[in-house]
Structures are given as C-alpha cells and as structure tokens.
Simulated assay, not measured.
Amino acid sequence: MQPVNMLEAKSSLSRLVEAVEQGHVPEVVIARNGRPVARLVPLADAPVGRRIGVARGRFVVPDDIDVHNAEVARLLMGGAAR
C-alpha cells in the first residue's frame, strides 16, 4: 500500500484501522510531507499462557518476610529511621 498522508490518515483512521484489523493490508504507512513517519500494524495475539505464578517453586519466601513492614511503612510516610 502506498503511504497515506497525515490529513488522509486523520480523516479516515477508522477505515485504515479496519483494513489492517481485517487483514486486507498488512500495514499502513503514514507520511508527513511525503516522508514516512509511522506504521499502523495489527497487534500480536495475546500470550496463551498464564502469567501469574510463573516463578512458583523457583525461590523460597522466608517466613519473616513481613517483619519490617511497619518500619518500612513509617519510613515511606516520612517518619525518621530509628
């Protein structure tokens, strides 16, 4: 597809997005003053696997991990260190 000038892209954005979304064109190149400056491309499909729990079993969380929570909270809220 020939580059689309900025004014045309602005006035027909929904049509251009639909063309890319439907696979009618692989991409739309947008030009400013005849110089290509941007590409409109479809997003890749979302990853299939679950992200939560990917590190399960790779390290051990110590039992005393929350021991200093009150002090950290105080410091973050502007309290002085002891």
Rank of each mutant, 00 (worst) to 15 (best):
A55C: 02
N5Q: 08
P42V: 02
L75Q: 08
H24I: 05
Q22S: 15
A80R: 14
V60E: 12
Q2P: 13
R82Y: 04
G49C: 02
L75P: 04
R15N: 11
G53S: 03
P36V: 04
R15K: 14
P3F: 15
L13H: 02
V60D: 10
Q2I: 13
S14K: 11
V54A: 15
G23I: 05
P62H: 02
I30T: 01
G79F: 11
G53K: 01
M1C: 13
E71R: 08
N69S: 13
V37D: 00
A46H: 02
L75K: 06
A44F: 01
V61D: 01
A81K: 10
M1W: 07
R39W: 10
K10A: 11
S11G: 12
N33G: 08
A70R: 08
R32N: 07
I30D: 00
L7I: 15
A31T: 03
P42N: 00
V48G: 00
L76D: 07
E71P: 03
A46Q: 06
V37M: 10
L7T: 12
R74E: 10
V25C: 07
Q22P: 00
R50M: 02
V67C: 07
R15F: 02
V25M: 06
I30M: 04
G78Q: 10
P47T: 02
L76K: 10
E27S: 13
V25F: 00
P47Q: 05
D45H: 06
M6W: 15
P3A: 07
R51S: 04
D63P: 09
E27G: 03
D64S: 14
S14Q: 12
R74F: 05
E71K: 06
G49F: 00
V67Y: 10
P3D: 07
R50P: 01
V61E: 03
R56P: 01
R50D: 06
V67G: 06
V28A: 05
D45Y: 04
R35D: 04
G53L: 03
M1R: 15
G79L: 08
R51D: 01
G79I: 06
R58S: 08
H24V: 08
Q22N: 13
M77G: 09
M1L: 15
A31E: 10
V54K: 13
H24K: 15
V60H: 07
V61T: 06
R58K: 10
A31W: 05
R56L: 09
V48S: 03
G57I: 01
E71T: 14
S12R: 14
A80T: 13
I65P: 01
G78N: 08
G49V: 05
I52A: 12
V20Y: 01
A38V: 09
A55M: 08
Q22A: 15
V25I: 13
E18Y: 09
F59Y: 13
S11M: 14
A46F: 03
V54M: 12
G57N: 02
V60N: 07
V41R: 05
H24M: 07
P62E: 01
V72H: 08
V72M: 08
A81C: 04
G57S: 03
A19E: 12
D63H: 06
I65G: 00
R39A: 03
A9I: 13
S14N: 11
N5L: 06
P26R: 13
A70P: 03
I30W: 04
